[in-house]
Amino acid sequence: MGFAEYHEDIVSRFNNDNYRSLGSNRRQEPTHTTAKEVRPMSRLKEFTTQTARPLPVILLADVSGSMGVDGKIQALNHAVREMIEAFQDEADLRAEIHVSVVTFGGQANTHLPLGPARDAAWTDLGARGGTPMGAAFDIAREMVEDRSVVSGRAYRPTIVLVSDGQPTDTWQQPLEALLGSERGGKAVRMALAIGADADHNVLQAFLADPEARVYSADEARQIRQFFQLVTMSVSARSRSANPNSAPVSVADDGWDL
C-alpha cells in the first residue's frame, strides 16, 4: 500500500460518516449515489490544455554573404530541413518539439516563427549582406521572454547559433541581455563555427560555459553532422524523465566535428 493510498483511506473515512469533520460529532447521511460512482467521468478534459508541453528549439542562422560560397548555405538548408523532418517523425515524446529559425544576413529576421515542428513548412534560405548577430540575439531574447510565444508550460528551450564570420553589429550588449534575461539565460545553448573565419570567441561567449564546446565545421558536410547532433540532443531531452534537467549527453565522438 502506497503512502497516498494510506492517507486516501483516512480521508475517505472523514468523508464518509462520523469522521466527516474533526470538529463535527454528528453523523451525516451519505449523499452519494451508486449511479454517480459507476458513471465514467472524463471531466478533467474540460479543465486541462489539450496540447503537450512544448520544447522550443530556436536556430540563429548566419545567412550573410560569405555563407553563399563553398556550398555552405546549401548544406545549411539541407541540414535544417532534415532536422525538422526528424522532429516531425519523432514519436513517444514527453514534449512537443517547437522550432523557430531566426536568420541574420544583411538584417535579422524571423524566417520560421516558433511553432510545432509537425506544422513547420521549410523554405530554403539565401545568403547575402553582413552578419548582424546582435540583432538576432535580440530577437531570440524577445521570443523566449514573450510568454505568449514561449508559454509558462514550455520546457527549457535549446538555442543553436551557427555562424561562419564575425558579427558586423554591436553584439556584446544584446548577448548580455539574452544571457541575463530570466528565461534566456536558462536555455540550453549549442554553437557551430563554420570555416576558418568564424569568430570562436563570440560563439564561446554565447555558450557562457568554459567547458561547453564550440563545434567546428571545416566542410559543408559537417554542418549536416552538427545538426544531426542537435537533433539527437533535443530528441533525447524530450524523451527524458525531466526535459528541464541538464541536457542529455549524446555521444559526439563519431561526428568528427
Partner: peptide, 29 residues
Amino acid sequence: WAVDELGPLRRPGVALARELRNWPVPHHR
C-alpha cells in the same frame, strides 16, 4: 467539479485517482 461531483461520492479519493490516471493531456508522464 471536485466539490460538486466528487464530494458526494462514497470514496471520492478513489474516483479522483481514476480521473488522474486517465489524464487527458498528450504525452503526460
